[in-house]
Design a protein around this nucleic acid. Structure first.
Lengths: 354, 354
DNA sequence: AAACGCCTGGAAAGCGCTTTCCATCGCCTC
DNA sequence: GAGGCGATGGAAAGCGCTTTCCAGGCGTTT
């Protein structure tokens, strides 16, 4: 029964249709539709309802989502665009988003740009073609104004088509956004180090065109200035948003500025690399010789040795909030959710020597 | 121009259709379709082709994928079902799959079961409703025969509808599968420890109903027997496939069997927990007092301290191969790709004392 | 008892696209 | 110069579903 004759059978041979279910139940197509996918706006008599359900069960009917999407002009698919699924930062956001999606019975279509800027645009367009009901832009915005503009255009098009867009992290004032406290986090990290007695604090940053990096750095600098840090030239090194990028940048930083007693790394993955670089390449003890603070508090941060002091961001919550925002039938006002950052002290920081 | 009047505008107001493009270009719908989405089977004259393209550009036409899916009875969507996107194991697989998907211009719809067994079935069904062209089952199979059977039924249905299914890890002999060398890996880990002089080797395993766990454990046991390990009762503790699960199980194991000099943890995430448990809860030095070997070689394994000796699995490659298999127009023969495991020695293992 | 409204069920018009037929047309072959 | 053929464009029939109308059948209301 229901024997799959051949694995290569042409696709169009397949699939039980609602029409068949209706026929088998002896009712009209309309009635079958109302029973099986009805929005509750119309009731169907007990007897017919039973018959339709029995027929569907017997024929092993599976509804055809594309057809429904076409007829209804709306789908239950949401898109999620990230830089890299393997990065724990995005993994956590995705996990939150998917948990919320499940509650709302949404399917999520995920796209990874692998940090290629052009791909974000391309995927947004594909998602638009898929008639996704909404999309979440989880990656950071950039300072590249041309790219930003083209993206804004595509977003406008998407919304004109009836879709919704929410950004995780600021991208523009008229977009729904879930913002994490990057500035505040940068500030907290600096103040935490300051309280431990550190006065010469360096920063390992990610690519400077990323808004996220900008904001974190900005928060750190502002705090430094506010505290009246010695007016030395900024000690900032930039690297890729990867472990190796962090390692190389940290090594460069401490070679150039051996006087530093602490470094703030603007991303945990980079911080893992920094820890390795300081230890293995430079032979500098953490935290005795130099304290290290990371950013994000990804799951493995606590397992590094020394355990990483870091700025915790509610990543999963951000993913969940984003989905919530998508469904929320907003008026014309763009929505905004602000999520806090919190410094978590662990073993990679210690009072400044002396 | 293309002014999004209101963010809440009903969806059906929206969208430029092919029909409109055709009209604007002064050609028939058929011609427009052939120009814009043609499979190359038919050629369209230079002049008309130009006009259609210009019209599409001018009207900012975006094709409607659900409508195409309906008309063509096939889509460019593939499903990917994982246990947990935030787990680096699945993160790596997903990254590989998405990279391959991008090359093939496929969109991937991802579903996370959060390790709830029933959800796998449910999502497979949803993916079937979406008329996904194929799905990748990335999570481990289980020994629960009833669940397995119901899944097999759903898979058969999916294939009868013209879809393809690829499993990562064995699920059944008649399914396309990408298999990683779990047994061999378990064996290699044990032999590695043996060569270091360890004779009393314990195992921290994940949930025993998971096939992956079974295979890894099986490989380890077989190696142990082959090497003529002392016929003591097996020292195996089981825990959740999480950091905390690994921590608790490792603590239990070493409390019950303080004579062990080495433990193989069947998953890196659990191994991170085990390292913490041995150090913080039991005060046992790794690797001096007890050596630890993990499994998977997820990215952070090398950053743990001591760096984790582990069995490396080509996770990304598995994801890529899975997608490749999906597209490969197989005959009726189920395909199979075998991927090797390799023991990577790092700091968490040392020669047995004495 | 006539008129009204409500509740159910069905017919049928799409939703946006692909693809199969036809119809042309210019060109080549014998 | 008639018959054929390949290349090109269009008409129209769906793909599987939702939803708007309509048509009856009842129970109420005056």
């Amino acid at each position: 029964m229901a024997n799959p004759r051949s694995r290569t059978r042409p696709a169009h041979t397949a699939g039980v249709t609602l029409q068949q279910v209706a026929r088998q139940a002896g009712v009209s197509l309309a009635t079958a539709s109302r029973v099986l996918h009805g929005s509750g706006a119309r009731t169907v008599g007990e007897e017919l309802r039973r018959r339709v359900e029995a027929a569907a069960e017997e024929l092993r009917y599976v509804s055809n989502a594309p057809a429904q999407a076409l007829a209804r002009a709306t789908s239950n698919v949401v898109g999620l665009i990230v830089h890299d699924v393997a990065d724990p930062y995005f993994g956590a956001i995705a996990a939150g988003a998917m948990r919320a999606a499940r509650e709302q019975r949404l399917m999520v279509m995920i796209a990874a740009t692998f940090r290629e800027p052009g791909l974000e645009l391309e995927y947004l367009r594909s998602l638009r073609a898929q008639r996704a009901r909404a999309v979440i832009l989880a990656g950071s915005g950039t300072t590249d104004t041309e790219a930003t503009e083209r993206l804004a255009e595509e977003i406008a098009g998407f919304e004109a088509d009836g879709g919704r867009v929410v950004c995780i992290g600021d991208r523009g004032p008229d977009l729904d956004t879930v913002a994490m406290a990057n500035r505040s986090g940068g500030g907290q990290a600096v103040r935490g180090l300051w309280e431990l007695g550190h006065r010469r604090i360096g920063v390992v940053a990610g690519p400077s065109e990323l808004l996220t990096v900008r904001h974190r750095l900005d928060g750190a600098r502002r705090a430094l200035r506010g505290l009246g840090a010695p007016a030395a030239p900024d000690a900032v090194e930039t690297g890729d948003f990867t472990r190796e990028g962090g390692r190389a940048a940290a090594v460069r930083l401490l070679r150039a500025r051996p006087d530093l007693t602490a470094v703030l790394v603007l991303n945990d993955v980079m911080a893992a690399g920094a820890l390795a670089g300081l230890r293995d390449d430079l032979g500098l003890a953490v935290p005795d010789r130099v304290s290290v603070v990371g950013f994000d508090d990804v799951p493995f941060a606590a397992d590094l040795r020394p355990a990483l002091t870091t700025v915790r961001l509610p990543l999963e919550a951000a993913g969940e909030e984003a989905v919530r925002l998508l469904l929320d039938p907003s008026g014309d006002e763009p929505r905004r959710v602000d999520l806090p950052a919190e410094l978590v002290l662990r073993g990679s920081t210690a009072p400044a020597a002396g």
